[in-house]
Amino acid sequence: MPEPRLAAGFWVQAYLRRLSLHDIPAFVTAHGDDTAGAALIKLNTLDGQARAYTRMFDLATGAQIWTELTGGEEAEVDAAIARQRSFDSDLWVIEVEDRQGRHLLDEDGLS
């Protein structure tokens, strides 16, 4: 039986709260569908560089895992995110700002 999925809006609020507990600033830059929207995380390291992460289905394990969609110059990452939003209007985009490159996506409970 498939694992139950959290509503997207609930997951986003929990993620933002967890980041705030670590004093990592984060902002919703695109509000997706509250129930079924997917989340895309932009990690801005505040040095002109950024990375975007999306959750994918791992065929080997059956788990949802975070993978890097793209990385590099912030403008290039923003363009890739805009392309994703152009064909998925339900997509949430959360921008995380951390010079150390922390996003917490590898912590328990965020997959």
Rank of each mutant, 00 (worst) to 15 (best):
Y15L: 02
P25A: 06
D106Q: 10
L105S: 13
A7R: 12
D88K: 05
P4S: 06
N44M: 04
G9F: 07
G9H: 01
F27P: 00
V96Y: 11
F10G: 00
V77H: 08
S20L: 07
L104T: 14
N44F: 13
A80S: 07
R55I: 07
A39S: 12
A63I: 04
Y15S: 03
F10L: 12
V28M: 03
F57Y: 11
Q100N: 08
D33G: 11
D108M: 05
T61R: 03
L110V: 10
Q84K: 11
A52P: 14
D98Y: 01
R18L: 15
G109T: 04
G72P: 10
A7Y: 12
T35W: 15
I65R: 15
A26Y: 05
A75I: 11
D98E: 13
A30R: 05
P2M: 10
D47L: 01
G9Q: 14
S20F: 04
S89R: 08
D108Q: 10
T61K: 03
R51V: 05
A79C: 05
E74K: 10
L69V: 02
M56E: 06
Y15H: 05
G72H: 04
D88Y: 01
F27V: 14
H31T: 14
I94L: 13
W92Y: 10
A75Y: 09
T29F: 02
A79F: 02
R99M: 09
V12G: 06
L43Y: 08
A80P: 00
E107L: 15
S111C: 02
Q13E: 10
L110T: 00
T67G: 11
E3F: 03
D90C: 15
Q100P: 03
T35E: 13
L91K: 01
D90I: 06
E73H: 03
N44Q: 09
G9D: 09
E76I: 06
L104C: 03
T61G: 12
L59R: 06
Q64D: 06
E68N: 08
P4C: 06
H22D: 03
V93M: 02
D108C: 05
M56S: 05
T70W: 06
L19E: 15
R83P: 00
A82Y: 01
I94G: 06
D98S: 03
I81K: 00
A80M: 09
G101A: 12
E97T: 12
L43N: 02
A50L: 11
R17Y: 09
T35D: 14
Q84H: 08
G37I: 12
M56C: 02
Y53Q: 07
I81Q: 07
I41C: 08
H103A: 12
V77F: 06
E68Y: 00
D33S: 12
L91S: 02
E73W: 01
T61Q: 03
A79Y: 03
I94P: 00
D23K: 09
I65W: 04
A63D: 08
W66F: 07
W11A: 11
T70H: 14
D23S: 08
A75R: 09
M1K: 10
A75K: 11
G72A: 04
Y15V: 02
R51M: 07
D78I: 00
F87D: 11
V77I: 06
D90N: 15
R5Y: 04
D47I: 07
F57M: 14
A38N: 07
D47G: 02
P25S: 09
W11K: 08
R17D: 15
K42H: 04
M1F: 12
E68C: 04
A38S: 12
D106F: 08
F27Q: 15
L59F: 11
A14E: 07
G48R: 01
R99T: 08
P25Q: 03
T61N: 06
